[in-house]
Amino acid sequence: MNPKRILPLTLIAAAVLSACSSMPVNNSLLDEARRDYGEAQASPGVATLAAGELRQAGTSLDAANGAFAKGEEKARIDHLAYVAKQQVAIARETAAQKEAELAVASAGRERDAVRLEARTKEARLAQADAANAQRQSEAAMRSADASQRNAEASRLSAQDARMRAAAEGQAARNAMIDAQVARQQSLDAEGRAQQLEAQLRDLEAKKTERGLVITLGDVLFDTNQSQLRSGGVRSVRKLADFFSQYPQRTVMIEGFTDSVGGDSANQQLSERRADSVRTALVGMGVGSERITWRGYGEAYPIAGNDTPAGRQLNRRVEMVVSDESGRAIAPR
């Protein structure tokens, strides 16, 4: 055979053969789909969070692979590969969506926890504040308590009048009258306070830590006797008047002597003198429950016992008057 005729024949045969088999060596779209699917399968997020979608993509890929193996037409293989590739992408997006949703949920839980913690902290602070305020208000109440009751009462009624005036508006005049009354009361209270001061001045009372102390000197008693002289009786009467005006107050009567004489004699004398003052006060109408008394003998001298003048000062009876609260005076 002529070799010149062989070549075209071979070419024709090759062309016919290739047309017949029509089996391509590879398909780029199918390769892409296979690669994407492999990657998605290897990704733990996609495999667990989008297992269903990935399985669907796998089924489509099997169909594409089957069509390719059977040598079906390229358009059909491309179509099946395209569907598989898009389904892999769907699986990947599904996994991303679920991951983000899980992140949202966990951030939400964390936010709730943080808020709860903050609220607990705030509540604790508020409690501490409240306790602080309570302490402050208690302190304020104590100090208010300590101030004069009369003054407080008048101040309160003045305040009351002011509040009424503000609330009622048209009753302003009434409120003014009330205020005047309150002012008058305040003046009255002031007047009473002045009166008290004058009386105490009269009695030569001294303000001490224990209370008001009124001292009845030796000259008001007969020598070595417990009987009050008339001058002493006058002083005791003033005190009795004072007690009748201030029924809340109580008194502690304390007797003292100088250092001359025996201890027991001095002790007895101091007790008798204190008791004699107590008896006089009771006789003038002061309730005995308001009076306590004690003798101290030669203890607690207020002057030196080495001079007659000093000894005279030491021979005395002291009356310690309580404040308005009527709290009993503690013994020395």
């Binding site: 997006e93 599904t94 991303a96 969506q97 679920k98 983000a100 949703e101 992140a103 949202v104 951030a107």
Partner: peptide, 9 residues
């Protein structure tokens, strides 16, 4: 959907 979820996160 995934873009919205990521945005929310």
């Amino acid at each position: 959907q995934s873009a919205k979820a990521r945005k929310a996160a």
